[in-house]
């Protein structure tokens, strides 16, 4: 059992958790992830380590409630427990002094990009951060990213914050203005990462993405997370999750990620129905449900 010591919402259905996991906190490096199982009948889901405090023995994960398991997790509060947390898994990010490094975080992908961006800064890079989100309320970790970057731009689909448009618009402007870019890290939804890859390809800029395939064990024993990278079959959990963006087959990745969509939608619908009819139990549950309902009526499902 792993105790949650801090839990707070950063945005609609986007929640930060600090969890006691000393062994993981001590060893983790930027780019690595954990596998979490919330409760006995739960599934195992991968979540990137957004931060860690070795002295306090805690790791931070940021969860976007998009399905049953993540919504269930998002109802947890400080003092609650998650059943299993295992890690650190995957290869750490390749940190080097590239020169000018552009780090692009799309939505909750910002949480994954943050530790790597910080490491890039510490390694002496000039770090430009581009944060993209649907609208202002979904922009997360802006202050944290500002602190570790030399320049920071925000784009929103609806223009409610920063530049109206997509992260690729901001990147394109940089490239077209003739600025030298030596390295790009893009983490976010698959179409966003694919678009960044296409944008940097003609410039020959080293571009890295962190892929998010479906995983089960996260230790290389099943190959459920296999990704086509160039001509090779890679397991994202042990060979990745970061890969050369110009070699990743994003179309296959997107198709494989849709494999259980019907099942997932049914599970979420049942969970939401149960959550609505469930009588309020403990005090914090009431607040949670109220919040969940409020968010839903806003129509703000991410």
């Amino acid at each position: 059992m792993f105790r949650i010591v801090e839990a707070r919402f950063l945005g609609p259905e986007i929640k930060l958790f600090r969890i006691e996991a000393p062994a993981i906190a001590r060893r983790q490096k930027p780019g690595q992830f954990v596998i979490v199982r919330v409760y006995e009948a739960g599934e195992r889901i991968p979540l990137t380590i957004a931060d860690a405090d070795a002295r306090a023995g805690t790791i931070t994960i940021i969860v976007q409630g998009v399905g049953k398991t993540t919504r269930l997790l998002n109802r947890k509060e400080a003092g609650d427990f998650v059943l299993d947390v295992v890690g650190p898994l995957g290869k750490p990010s390749e940190i080097a002094r590239y020169g000018t490094a552009v780090v692009i975080g799309g939505g909750v992908g910002t949480a994954i990009a943050h530790p790597t961006a910080r490491a890039l800064k510490e390694a002496g890079n000039y770090v430009v951060v581009i944060l993209g989100a649907r609208s202002r309320q979904y922009v997360i970790l802006e202050d944290e990213m500002r602190r570790i970057s030399d320049e920071l731009y925000v784009t929103t689909d609806d223009g409610s914050q920063g530049q109206r448009g997509l992260v690729t618009d901001a990147l394109r402007q940089m490239l077209e203005s003739g600025r030298r870019v030596d390295y790009v890290l893009a983490i976010g939804p698959i179409p966003m990462m694919a678009a960044v890859a296409e944008l940097t390809r003609p410039y020959g800029i080293k571009t890295v993405v962190s892929v998010n395939p479906i995983m089960v064990d996260g230790t290389g024993m099943c190959g459920g997370c296999r990704v086509q990278v160039g001509q090779e079959n890679k397991f994202a959990c042990v060979d990745g999750p970061e890969f050369d963006a110009h070699l990743v087959n994003f179309r296959l990745l997107a198709t494989r990620n849709s494999m259980y969509r019907e099942f997932e939608q049914r599970a979420l619908a049942e969970f939401e129905r149960a959550a609505r009819t469930e009588p309020p139990a403990a005090g914090h549950e009431c607040r949670m449900l109220a919040l969940a309902r409020a968010l839903e009526s806003e129509g703000s499902r991410p």
């Binding site: 024993m221 099943c222 190959g223 459920g224 086509q228 494999m259």
Partner: peptide
């Protein structure tokens, strides 16, 4: 515990599993 794949075309298709994955699930 490391599954061997066949390395033939189409191995990435949805519905193709290693036995390890299918049985673990």
């Amino acid at each position: 515990g490391l599954p061997v794949f066949l390395n033939i075309p189409g191995e990435h298709l949805c519905g193709v599993y290693s036995a390890n994955e299918f049985l673990t699930r």
